[in-house]
C-alpha cells in the first residue's frame, strides 16, 4: 500500500488533472491515428481488390462510380473492368438490410452479356453454422448464382416463387442475399448495363 500523499480534491487540482489526462490521451490517439491511417486504408483497398478479382474476369484497368440504389436509401459502388480497352464486366458493391442480424454487403459481378459472373460476401454477421453459408468458404450455396441471367433466373427463394434454393434453416439469410443481388441487378439495369 502506498502511503504517498495525494493532491487534495480542490477544484483547480481536479481541473488540471483531468485536463492533463485528456490532453495526453488526445495526443497519443492522434499519433496512433496518423500512424495507422495508411495501413487501414491499405487493408481496405486489399479487401476490395481481392473481392473484385473474384467477381470479375481478368482485367487491367478499372473505372468506378457511385450510383443511388434502386429501392434503397444508400448508394452502390460500380467498378467496371476493362481488358485491352474492351469491357469485361461490372462489379456492383451492394447491400441488404434484411439479414438475420441487419445489414451486410456483398459484391456482384456482371458480364456484358448480362450474366452474373460471381458473387463475394464483403462482411456479414449472420449466424455461424447457418446463415454464414452465404460465404463461399463455408458452403457452395452461392455458386448457384454464377452464370445465371437475372432476366430468366428469378432472384427470389423458391418459397417466395423464385428460382433460388434457400439454405436449409436459413431462409432469412438466403432472402437477404437475393435482396442484395436483386438491388445490384436492378440498379445495373437502370444504369444501362443491359445491352
Amino acid at each position: 500500500m502506498s502511503k504517498q500523499k495525494k493532491p487534495e480534491s480542490t477544484f483547480p487540482n481536479m481541473v488540471i488533472a483531468l485536463l492533463l489526462v485528456t490532453m495526453i490521451a488526445g495526443l497519443a490517439l492522434g499519433g496512433v491515428y496518423v500512424v495507422t491511417k495508411e495501413p487501414i486504408a491499405a487493408a481496405k483497398r486489399a479487401k476490395l481488390e481481392n473481392a473484385l478479382g473474384k467477381v470479375l474476369p481478368e482485367f487491367d484497368t478499372l473505372k468506378n462510380k457511385k450510383v443511388p440504389a434502386v429501392n434503397g436509401n444508400d448508394s452502390l459502388a460500380f467498378y467496371t473492368g476493362y481488358r485491352n480497352g474492351s469491357e469485361v464486366g461490372t462489379a456492383v458493391k451492394t447491400y441488404t438490410e434484411k439479414g438475420y442480424d441487419g445489414r451486410f454487403d456483398i459484391m456482384v459481378g456482371f458480364t456484358p452479356d448480362n450474366r452474373i459472373e460471381n458473387t463475394a460476401v464483403l462482411n456479414h454477421t449472420e449466424t455461424p453454422g447457418l446463415g454464414d453459408k452465404i460465404e463461399k468458404s463455408k458452403s457452395d450455396w452461392s455458386k448457384q448464382f454464377n452464370g445465371k441471367n437475372p432476366e430468366q433466373f428469378q432472384l427470389k427463394v423458391k418459397k417466395d416463387g423464385g428460382d433460388v434454393d434457400a439454405i436449409t434453416a436459413a431462409t432469412i439469410s438466403s432472402r437477404a442475399f437475393c435482396d442484395a443481388t436483386k438491388r445490384a441487378y436492378e440498379t445495373y439495369e437502370k444504369e444501362g448495363g443491359v445491352k
Partner: peptide, 30 residues
C-alpha cells in the same frame, strides 16, 4: 496514482482505458 485527486480518479481511469481501447481498435483495423 499519486498525481490524481481522489474525486476525479474514475473519470481519469475511464479516459486512460478508452484511449487504449481506441489504440487497439485502430491497430486491429490496420
Amino acid at each position: 496514482k499519486s498525481l490524481i485527486p481522489v474525486k476525479v480518479r474514475i473519470p481519469s481511469f475511464i479516459v486512460i482505458i478508452a484511449s487504449f481501447v481506441t489504440i487497439v481498435e485502430l491497430v486491429m483495423q490496420a
